[in-house]
């Protein structure tokens, strides 16, 4: 079990949250400018990093806000949580 620090609600058990995969993969500004390979890379390819990993979580059963958690994928230690800019 993980104790996830929601930036708005405080630490809560992981069953209140939804995992949203790797963070920092913005949708390309002009998808039509990408080759099929580049677009497939955006759609399907993820790094699956060992160690520090920035990932998206949503406090589904709480405030319903998405935020970013930094987690060590080896130890599952949670190193921090941050909000998205301009998030309202």
């Amino acid at each position: 079990m993980l104790l996830i620090p929601c930036p708005w609600c405080g630490p809560r058990e992981d069953d209140e949250f939804t995992f949203g995969g790797e963070a920092d993969i913005p949708r390309p500004a002009d998808p039509d400018a990408l080759t099929d390979e580049q677009w497939a890379d955006y759609l399907f390819m993820r790094d699956n990093r060992r160690g520090r990993h920035r990932e998206q979580w949503c406090h589904t059963a709480g405030c319903r806000r998405w935020f970013i958690v930094e987690r060590d994928t080896v130890t599952n230690e949670i190193l921090g949580a941050s909000t998205y800019g301009n998030s309202s």
Partner: peptide
């Protein structure tokens, strides 16, 4: 709803 919220909160925050 979750899908729409995710776009609004993480990508289209403007």
């Amino acid at each position: 709803l979750a899908w729409l919220e995710q776009w609004l909160q993480t990508e289209w925050t403007d």
